[in-house]
Write a protein that binds this DNA or RNA. Sequence first.
DNA 1: ATAGCATTATTTATCATACAAATGCAATTG
DNA 2: CAATTGCATTTGTATGATAAATAATGCTAT
Lengths: 245, 245
Amino acid sequence: MTVSTMEAPAGKLIRPRVRLSVAQSLAQDIFSGKFAEGSNLPRENDLCEEYGVSRTVIREALKILQAKGLVVSRPRIGTIVCPQDEWNILDNQVLEWIGPNLDRMGLVDCILEARGAIEPMAAELAARRATMQEIADIEAAWQAMAKAGNDVEAFIAADTVFHELLLKASHNRIFQQFGALMDPALNFMLSTSAHSAENLEESIGQHGALVEALRLRDSEGARKLALALIAKAKHDVSAARSVKP
Amino acid sequence: MTVSTMEAPAGKLIRPRVRLSVAQSLAQDIFSGKFAEGSNLPRENDLCEEYGVSRTVIREALKILQAKGLVVSRPRIGTIVCPQDEWNILDNQVLEWIGPNLDRMGLVDCILEARGAIEPMAAELAARRATMQEIADIEAAWQAMAKAGNDVEAFIAADTVFHELLLKASHNRIFQQFGALMDPALNFMLSTSAHSAENLEESIGQHGALVEALRLRDSEGARKLALALIAKAKHDVSAARSVKP
DNA sequence: ATAGCATTATTTATCATACAAATGCAATTG
DNA sequence: CAATTGCATTTGTATGATAAATAATGCTAT
């Protein structure tokens, strides 16, 4: 497959910026299993032909994958896929690239479990540390959820923002990073789980209660409500799985 | 500063593999504050002269930093340092590079807080899911701690392995990744906190109790003991701070 | 004068090519 | 048979040229 070229107004062929496209394509081939862990990627020169770009681009793309722990390169040996343990799955770009393979790789359950540990603590901290502005922003996200109505896409987007803001309001940079990182994962999970009308209603109610706890600086209440949110998320995901596995 | 060269047996000048060295050097200059967030790095050509390497190497090093969210590059603008929010601090290489600046950046407290959320949950899961072999390995690490005696270095190494194995035994890839990631941070924190004789004794006792809980599949006990370990770590760190701030 | 537009200058992005270094593999040699 | 030497292959680095993007500048027209 060669990289697409675009027609400029004057009719000149323009080559789009391609480094990231190549990196993404290679990464997705890894996550899809096309390149199994431990196996060799094609030689750099072969990749040049495959993608129709210079070796410079191929190498810089491979450097990106190396930086994320997906591959290692050595002279004469070639570039080989690292064991999964070494993949930097706490990198949001990596999570984006994994995308539809999240569940197949067993990461959805991992993520829900991890959120179960992190979000309650983050909510507790947010109840103590969040500024009035941050609480107001979270409430705005909640209102966006409530106002989404049947627009599932808008609901998901608002829900994602809600959790990201909550983690940021914990004023802990680790949790905050985790929030940005959960973005693609959340989108994927939410988009695949069931969305009945009463389901959305219940979710909106829970989120609202959490906002209220933040306002009251009720850290214990916030913790419990965050825990309940995760429990509901787990339930939704397993329900969605039983419908269409 | 030019990259050092080595004298080969025959007297030929050999250039060591330098990409990573350059990336590390630039990253450390960022974390030390030499390149403030939002400011420009030198032009690629200037960096070539500074490090005495070709533009190829400079660019591939910058690609690594880009992949970790430390900088962004755009034509005509140059390469600028990203805001700290975007730094990929959940990358163990980044954490290594931060090294001595961990505390100055306020990350030690963040990490302790995050561990407070994660390790109890991980211990709980490990009590349910760990294989006999994994428990044995954890116990071996504990024995190494006990046998370290006054060798603080060995004690720290064993302690690090203990926590890494514990997180791995949770059979959750997120937690596992977090363990590998904590490695450099743990080393730094442990090496800077107080190490009196009775302190070590108490720590060894707590870790031993946790191993026992794992053996008994006592998830609730494991959770509480992990929590106590973190509390002790927090205490040690603040004690070390009050001694030599 | 000023808002909008074309030009320019500067910097990164890509291409192309050549050579250096590392290393698996085979031939060679003691 | 073992050790070493040389060869072949692949990534690593160097170099120089061209393309694309865009801030800054200057120009034009209103």
